[in-house]
Nucleic acid binder design. Sequence first.
DNA 1: CTGTTAGCGCGTTCAC
DNA 2: GTGAACGCGCTAACAG
Lengths: 349, 349
Amino acid sequence: MSNPTVYDVARMAGVGVGTVSRVLNNSTRVSPETQEKVLDAIRVLGFRRSKAARQLSTGIQHRNIGAIMPFITHPSFVERLRGMQLALNHQDNDFNLVLYNVSEPDRYHEQLLAIAAQAAVDGLLIATLNVSDEQRDLLTQAGIPFVTLGDAGTGALNCISLDNVHGGYLATQHLLELGHRRIAYIGDEFTNVYGFPTSELRYTGYLSALKEYDVPYTAEYVCLGAHGEETAYRLTEQLLTLPEPPTAIFAMSDIQAVGCIQAIQFHGQRVPEDLSVIGFDDVQLSRYIGLTTVRQHLEQSGYLGMQLLLDLLVNPDSIVPRELPPLELIVRDTTRRYSGQISSSRASG
Amino acid sequence: MSNPTVYDVARMAGVGVGTVSRVLNNSTRVSPETQEKVLDAIRVLGFRRSKAARQLSTGIQHRNIGAIMPFITHPSFVERLRGMQLALNHQDNDFNLVLYNVSEPDRYHEQLLAIAAQAAVDGLLIATLNVSDEQRDLLTQAGIPFVTLGDAGTGALNCISLDNVHGGYLATQHLLELGHRRIAYIGDEFTNVYGFPTSELRYTGYLSALKEYDVPYTAEYVCLGAHGEETAYRLTEQLLTLPEPPTAIFAMSDIQAVGCIQAIQFHGQRVPEDLSVIGFDDVQLSRYIGLTTVRQHLEQSGYLGMQLLLDLLVNPDSIVPRELPPLELIVRDTTRRYSGQISSSRASG
DNA sequence: CTGTTAGCGCGTTCAC
DNA sequence: GTGAACGCGCTAACAG
């Protein structure tokens, strides 16, 4: 039924538990024959010693920090992870970093429940995922302090946040200033299963910029789908077949922008000569491919989040608030002035 | 001295330990005033319950798999990580992935010792790092099965390996076939502090290809330094100032190849028109920037390594050996036929 | 509602 | 060299 314990091993080997423990840690000398008997019993029973019992007995404390995020495979999360690691290395406390990858959105809550129940971590970093009031209470009652990165629902207590609406505005404004008027938006579904509203917020910024420049809203220019390069590729293809295709695209993430660019190029058009593309995030890749984007300091976000969490864990009384630098428009090579018309900067008011 | 326990809390609050436990787990109803007293005591004492004790008592098992690697910030390790996560998700056992980033090489052994002592993980994935006989014994005796990824020293038992010599040969051969004869090698120091011989192995392949094509070895064309984009950039600058600079560069990793390309372009030359550059790894980035490289299936390496480790942990009796697909030359846009001379494919024998 | 007690599985004294 | 007993900190079952 239950896993075999040292007692089971001892009984089978015809020795005491002390001896079993000794061969396990080869502390004191044990006679070769006894050792053999014990090892045999261990093998036969498939015995594996319990981590918990061992830790409890030896008094070794090992502190874990969990990081839970979706899309661990996506670049933006890698950047955050890098920041977390960096912060961890800078302070020389030996915390381990435990990764929880939310592969299926439905399981997110379930994973949170498990984390709370298992008491496997001392603190939790929640990247991009929504935290409901219920989930906050869950973690709080389990005694697990947590810090959220990005948009984080009503349950967020300590958050490294950014102004996604403003970011969406910045990106769109850049395109408008370049004279573009047919500007598409490519983003995640608003009601995404993970519950975070990033796409909708950036879209809101997009809308407000359009409005400010008196550019009419065009429903066909707003394309939503699953996060990722492939979907962005498909959505862009749809845009290109429109009777009046956009002259510029604002993709809500760099990786989606990459998908856009690939679709555009595959269909024989050029970026930025024929279409301008702007992304969001400024992941490492963007620097290499020369993508114009909005920098949201992802790595630093992970870094600050980890610092904040360590504060919470190590010296809860002297928490310093951490703030991200403001979003930054990074102009590179994928956006260009709209050549179809000479347009002054600001539309008439 | 030691951390406060439930007993300390109970004493201070003037209640029994059962009550303390109850407010901790808010299992049964506790009178508000009692609860308040307990919470106060917890706050004052700075009490935090022990994970180990809780787990032991509740009988909850939580299994951890550790992944230890240097350069977590580098793309190639991210790819491996992705593969590991993927394999973990595919089997529905709830293993946690604990990350150990070797930030300073000196601490690698120390970290291994800690992992063995803490018994924090049930199994270990060791990426690229060397495992000595001593370290193997350490892990074995601690009852921690491990799988190594890449070159892995004499202590390796289960390994997902690749033929780095052959890879170095493939890359160099490609350049030779394109008619290049002045071919530089940019790689890590051979005696790197982490102890893994990757750079030297790929260099060996480079040498053997040169020899096969009767190309004389030129010492100045071999540039070694710390791993990373920046060092590769500097080394490339040195190459460019040579009286007779190379016409092609083989960089031992894609990220170093990127450094090469940036240096070349910064100094007004073009890739591949003026210089050809080939990397090694085929990380995601390379696809986007069109880098010619040798694909070593990094993600799959992490995937297979994890599968193997899970075998070791879950059904140790039915271990299937895992093998990586062969190395693959991926020709993209950074290598081109040498234009300085018309060269037939193979040099005279 | 609350205090008491008996384990959880292992390491580690002790005596033998 | 080896077995028996105690304790690590917590939860849960049982009385009260």
